[in-house]
């Protein structure tokens, strides 16, 4: 099974990944193979099965109190920023 190239392009743009033209085919095939593998799940009758959406946890109502604590020092937070200017992160100009 192959995933349509248009699908591959769409998924890549959603994920902000760039797929070379040359590689489109490879992705089509590989993704297709994995999806085919995943389609095994269709063998099961899931008609009445509840969706286990909260994963492995049976916890609920985990909260914290509304308390203000000191924030991190700005220099510490910005330490890893690839580009910063006057206390802010920098991105290419955005026109809204």
């Amino acid at each position: 099974m192959k995933i349509e190239q248009s699908q591959v392009k769409y998924v890549a743009s959603l994920a902000r990944l760039r797929i070379d033209e040359a590689e489109q085919d490879k992705w089509s095939e590989q993704m297709g193979a994995i999806i085919e593998f995943a389609d095994q799940l269709n063998e099961l009758d899931l008609h009445d099965a509840e969706s286990n959406e909260q994963g492995s946890t049976s916890l609920y109502n985990v909260f914290r109190e509304d308390e203000r604590k000191e924030s991190f020092d700005r220099d510490k937070i910005l330490f890893n920023a690839p580009e910063q200017y006057e206390g802010c992160y920098v991105v290419p100009k955005i026109v809204e």
């Binding site: 993704m31 799940l41 269709n42 899931l46 286990n52």
Partner: peptide, 20 residues
């Protein structure tokens, strides 16, 4: 892909049901 519009039920949701 598994989460994208039109595929959520077929893949992610199904997998979570199988999980249960």
């Amino acid at each position: 892909y598994a989460l994208s519009s039109g595929y959520y039920d077929a893949y992610y949701k199904k997998a979570q049901q199988v999980r249960g």
